[in-house]
């Protein structure tokens, strides 16, 4: 990835690689004791960014995911979709080259799922490679993007504009 062998790399270089990869999970993994803005800023703080930069970048991604109004709410006070958007903001705040979304809509209702998918597509259009794992046939069929079909860990199909089941 990015000219680096990720299989044989030194343990101490892993954190730098992770900064180039944003990850979104099915269960959001937000810190319940921190507000939306703090959850997002956390990713910048622990990677050594300082005050003004943290505020600017946090505001930028929060307006990108449409949560600027909810910045001082805690995760418990948000809907599932809002929580997932917070997690996406956190994943994007380090300006990653790749965004990995692991079942991002798994815990969400169909309407909210579509909001998240639209947001992911927009992130992709802004120039970030998006890798999404999903079981949602409807989404896959609607997007008609490259589909890699995995079965028990092996690639069984790879199509440029694929559908859920061939």
């Amino acid at each position: 990835m990015d000219g680096q062998d990720v299989v044989r790399m030194r343990h101490s270089h892993v954190p730098r690689l992770r900064r180039k990869v944003g990850v979104v999970f099915q269960d959001f993994k937000l810190l319940p004791t921190r507000t939306v803005a703090e959850n997002v800023a956390f990713a910048l703080l622990v990677t050594g960014h300082s005050g003004d930069e943290v505020r600017e970048e946090t505001d930028r991604v929060l307006s990108l995911v449409g949560l600027a109004q909810r910045r001082d709410h805690f995760p418990d006070q948000l809907s599932g979709g809002e929580q997932q958007r917070t997690a996406m903001a956190r994943a994007l705040v380090n300006r990653p080259r790749i965004l990995i979304a692991d079942e991002p809509t798994g815990n969400l209702d169909p309407v909210t799922s579509w909001e998240i998918i639209k947001l992911l597509v927009r992130v992709n259009e802004l120039g970030t490679t998006l890798v999404m794992a999903t079981h949602n046939a409807e989404i896959v069929n609607a997007l008609r993007r490259r589909v890699v079909h995995l079965d028990h860990g092996a690639v069984v199909r790879d199509e440029r504009e694929g559908l859920y089941a061939a």
Partner: peptide, 17 residues
Amino acid sequence: RDEIEIMKLVGASDWFV
């Protein structure tokens, strides 16, 4: 542990943790 997991996920160095 949750906080540490997320710190490592977003690329905090081991020393920072």
